[in-house]
């Protein structure tokens, strides 16, 4: 029934799509990492805003996390794709540049992932900050640390430590969300699988191969985050 077998399709032979699929998995990883990093910046800013005593900043932080977690990621990606270049073009006009400004799909995709991911990271950072021991902060103050020094030496290391498990989960979200970037034409793993499925009419093999590669990516990153967590917990006494 099948004119071309599974192993031939995912292999590296003449009719094989193995190299293309691996390359696409690399694009998936790259766009997810960029998105995650953008999300880290936005997430820590949003967490700081939500924790601040400034009511306007807190409201903006809340607005951001509420909206981005309340609408489908697919819509966010479309809005970035269609709205992003419109907005950029308008900004360009204001600055006197008279043409259309488009962003490469990779950048659009990474930004869209980052904006959604930031909303989740904000909650992780906020939770981690709230679990800091008040005593340590007071101790730091009493030995005369400046705010900046206290932030660098006490707050950041501990927030990161508490945040690692949560960040691991949010990273997985970024990785899985990157599959949606296929809708704006970035040839990442799912898109490549779709191209293969359409071209060979063997959708099952291609989507199966894609699923296996995604699983490999999430497994490797889960292990990496576990190792990081173990490292960061050196010298921390565990309960029980």
């Amino acid at each position: 029934m099948t004119p071309i077998g599974f192993f031939e399709i995912i292999g590296f032979g003449e009719r094989g799509w193995g190299a293309a699929l691996l390359l696409a998995a690399g694009v998936t990883l790259a766009v997810a990492i960029c998105g995650f990093l953008v999300g880290s910046v936005l997430g820590s800013l949003a967490a700081a805003a939500k924790l601040s005593r400034n009511r306007i900043a807190a409201a903006i932080g809340d607005f951001y996390t509420t909206v981005l977690r309340g609408i489908p990621d697919l819509l966010v990606i479309y809005l970035f794709y269609f709205g992003g270049s419109l907005a950029l073009t308008n900004v360009g006009r204001m600055l006197g540049y008279d043409g259309f400004i488009g962003l490469p799909v990779f950048v659009t995709g990474a930004l869209a992932i980052g904006v959604v991911n930031g909303a989740y990271q904000a909650e992780v950072f906020r939770g981690a900050y709230l679990s800091l021991s008040k005593g340590e902060l007071e101790a730091a103050k009493s030995v005369g640390m400046s705010r900046a020094l206290m932030f660098r030496r006490i707050v950041v290391p501990q927030v990161l430590r508490y945040a690692i498990p949560g960040l691991g989960n949010v990273w997985q979200l970024a990785l899985k969300e990157s599959a949606l970037i296929s809708v704006i034409g970035l040839v990442e793993l799912l898109r490549q699988a779709q191209i293969g499925a359409g071209s060979t009419r063997q959708p099952f093999y291609f989507f199966l191969a894609a699923a296996i590669l995604y699983l490999a990516l999430t497994t490797i990153s889960t292990i990496a985050f576990q190792k990081a967590e173990e490292r960061s917990m050196r010298g921390v006494r565990r309960a029980g």
């Binding site: 899985k176 990157s178 499925a197 989507f207 199966l208 894609a210 699923a211 995604y214 699983l215 999430t218």
Partner: peptide, 13 residues
């Protein structure tokens, strides 16, 4: 398996 792969891939599959 189901938490480690994107839902969109599961739907297509």
């Amino acid at each position: 398996v189901f938490r480690g792969t994107p839902l969109l891939v599961q739907i297509f599959l």
